[in-house]
Amino acid sequence: MAQYGFYVDLNACIGCKACQMACKDRAGNEPGINWRRVIEVGGGEWRQSGTSWTPDIFAYFLPTACHHCSNPPCLPVCPTAAISKDDNGIVKINVEQCIGCHYCEWACLWGAPQFYEDRGIVDKCDFCKDIVDAGGSPACVEACPMRAMEWGDIEELRASHPGATFAVVPLADPQDFGPNSTYTAHVASTDRVGEILNQEEI
């Protein structure tokens, strides 16, 4: 049994948000609901050399969605047993069972489950399960013009990208949840810590 996951090369991502839009398009999500989000991270300062000041700044983009954790915190807390993990490790919400109590939202560290005001339920990235089961690739991966994203067995992804990690700013410390996303960190972030620049948008 595989555990599916995502890999993103943050050096290749240009922040075009095609993945975000492809996801919205496929899931039919209204504005305000984003199963995949692209976080803009940046920082830096002005440096003085002699009498002149020059900007020493950096920025990078970080696409994130549900990490289909090995030990997902959302799953056991759900009172309706609407959340399940399938043979491929995909964590899915059964929206017919969900009553929209928000509890999974409180448990997830990365804001993956999102509430639909109009339908009164919570839903999130399902790894494009229908497409993947039919032999295709998730919409976000397919849409990336930079080919920065990959999907597959997370162990294989980690093996084929040495140095890939989940420890990238601004993703929260995963505790023992075992998120199944991995990233090649942006070169600018190896010695500097940026902050989220598009908080309003995500």
């Binding site: 807390v77 009172p79 309706t80 609407a82 969900c98 009553i99 509890y103 009164g120």
Partner: peptide
């Protein structure tokens, strides 16, 4: 969000 499904809330007594 869906009060009419309130009895679903008894489905996961094991862990929730």
């Amino acid at each position: 969000g869906n009060p009419e499904r309130m009895f679903n809330m008894l489905s996961n007594l094991d862990t929730s």
